[in-house]
Every structure is written in structure tokens, then in C-alpha cells.
Design a protein around this nucleic acid. Structure first.
Lengths: 155, 155
DNA sequence: ATACTATTGTTGTAAATGCAACATATTTTT
DNA sequence: AAAAATATGTTGCATTTACAACAATAGTAT
């Protein structure tokens, strides 16, 4: 007769959704308060580009879990701001648009990282020990990897 | 010289965001496949109403972390489908719209819960032990509670 | 008492998002 | 070789979302 967790609001899915939602709002407010020139989405895209040098747009979209259309639009904005460069290349004999972060982009990324890092770390440290953070992060990553296998991505 | 976690993509915030995003896509696809009459958002709203009987719209919005406008619109939809009823009441001497779930709503909620429960549990169990699930859930809840104190909700 | 402020819900609107359709090019099938 | 299928990026559109403005009411201040 163990009837716990009958409600969606008691599930880990709800907890994930709501925590992520709050985190997004907090980040949004932080970016506004610091008057950063990038939106949180542009920032995370720029960061992803800086790590995955030379990916094509579709592969980037897969990393960001966004569709190709929006990925392209964010890249347009980053390109207009001179933070990335795009160039035509081939991948499996196909023409693709690849991209790389510029010097200006690297500087901007570094600047934002410096500005937000300590604040965001303070937020997590308020609740969790460094060990707990690492543990949750690892568990979520494992979970995310499995989800990626299950979910049909249509990108 | 410990320079780990310099990137956003190595942060717990990124992990939360991406995992939640994947989870949302998976749930969306599941609801479509099962041809449920409600959207995931309507479902979670209905579930929240069923637990918090007699809340006013603004308080519900705070629970859902949505703004009042959208909360009202989702409630319109649920009311049109006959799953909730709304009635005028007072709270601190103020006129408010309260709501409750109907018999039909309870049945629908129960039906959906039955249909999705085992599937969603299977998804988590694929990666995590029940203990791990509980642990992560508790940690996230603690974290979420602290976030709610920090974030300025404007609802 | 009058004016100001705060609470609640709705409406309007601009931005973000996702999805389908399209254009182009390449691979695979027949 | 021709046709069909696949991969990539863009455009258009319909839905969702957030935010601001408004209407109505009640509490607070001057």
C-alpha cells in the first residue's frame, strides 16, 4: 500500500522542471542587473561554440537542444556582434556552415564568466556542499545521457 | 591552479537546464503519442489545483512559476473542458477567483497518471536507483526552496 | 476625506519558440 | 542514369511566453 508519489508534483520531473525554471529566471535577472550585452541564451551558445570549435550548425543545435531555425538566428546575432565568425566548409562531402569564436568573443565570454561565476557559485553553495553539487551534477549528467538516447530529437 | 569548471557547460546550472529541457521534450512526445486530451502544462496545472484546493489565481501562479496572465489562460482552457470550476471568494477582504477540480477533472487526472506513471518511472529507473532518485529529488527541493527566496518573482 | 499605494485578474503586444515547408546539394536505390 | 531519400540551412507561421497597461477594489497615509 505504498502510495507515495502519486502526484506529478512529487516526481523528480516536476522538481527538475521547477528548479530549472527558477534558475533561468535568476540568471535572466542577473544578466539584466549586470547590464551584459548578451542574453543568457547567447551566452551559453557562445560558450558552447568556444568549446566545440568547428562544429556545423546542426551539430551545434543538437548540443544546445534547440531546433536549427533558432540556432541559426542566435548565431546571426552573435555574428553581427562580431563574437563569432562563420565560414563554409564540408562535412562528409556536404557543404556546411561552421563557426569559431573570435578574439572579441573570447574576451566577452571571459568577461561575463568573471562577472557571474562567483555569484552563481554562491547561490549553489548556499544550499549544497561542493560534494553534493558534484554528486547531483554527475547523477544528472548520467540521466541526461540516457534521456538523449530515448528522446527522438528531430533536429 | 585548479581551473576546472570555468565553462558554463560544466556548471550545475547548465546540467539542470539541459536535463529539464530533454525531460520536457520527452514528456511532450509521450503526451502526443498517447493522444491525451491535455497538454503537459494543463496536466501539471490540473495536478497542482487538485492538491491546493481553494487557492486564488495569483497564488497558483506562484506555485506554477508562471505569470498571472498565462495562468489565467490555462485555467480558462481547463474550465472550458469542465475539469475545474471557478468561483468568486474573498481572501484578506479582497475578491479573488478560487478554483477546484471537478469530478471529471479528477477522473481525467487519474487516467493520465495511470497512463504515464510507469513509463516515466521506467525512464528514471533506467539510470538511477530509487535511492538516488530520492536523494537528487531532496537536494533539488532544498535548492529550489533557497532559489525561491532569492529570486524576485514579480507575480 | 481625499489621495496614494497595493492586490487581483484581464487584455494587448512584442519577443521567443517550435514546427513545417522550402531550396540546395549529396548519397542511395532501382 | 533517373528517382528517391537524406542532410543542411533558411523562411514563414502559428503557438507560447513574458511583460506592461489597465480596471476594479481595498487598505494606508496625509
Amino acid at each position: 500500500m505504498k502510495d507515495i508519489k502519486l502526484h506529478y508534483t512529487d516526481s523528480i520531473h516536476y522538481e527538475l522542471e521547477q528548479t530549472a525554471r527558477l534558475m533561468r529566471i535568476l540568471t535572466q535577472q542577473l544578466f539584466e542587473r549586470l547590464e551584459l550585452k548578451l542574453s543568457p541564451d547567447e551566452y551559453s551558445t557562445l560558450d558552447t561554440v568556444s568549446i566545440n570549435a568547428g562544429v556545423c550548425q546542426r551539430d551545434l543545435a543538437k548540443l544546445l537542444l534547440k531546433d536549427r531555425a533558432n540556432t541559426g538566428r542566435i548565431l546571426n546575432s552573435l555574428e553581427e556582434k562580431g563574437l563569432i565568425t562563420r565560414f563554409i566548409d564540408t562535412k562528409n562531402n556536404r557543404l556546411v556552415k561552421k563557426m569559431g569564436i573570435t578574439e572579441k568573443g573570447l574576451k566577452e565570454l571571459d568577461k561575463i564568466n568573471k562577472k557571474i561565476k562567483s555569484y552563481l557559485e554562491g547561490v549553489t553553495q548556499k544550499t549544497m556542499s561542493p560534494d553534493e553539487v558534484t554528486k547531483v551534477q554527475e547523477t544528472l549528467k548520467k540521466f541526461r545521457m540516457d534521456l538523449e538516447k530515448i528522446v527522438d530529437m528531430k533536429i
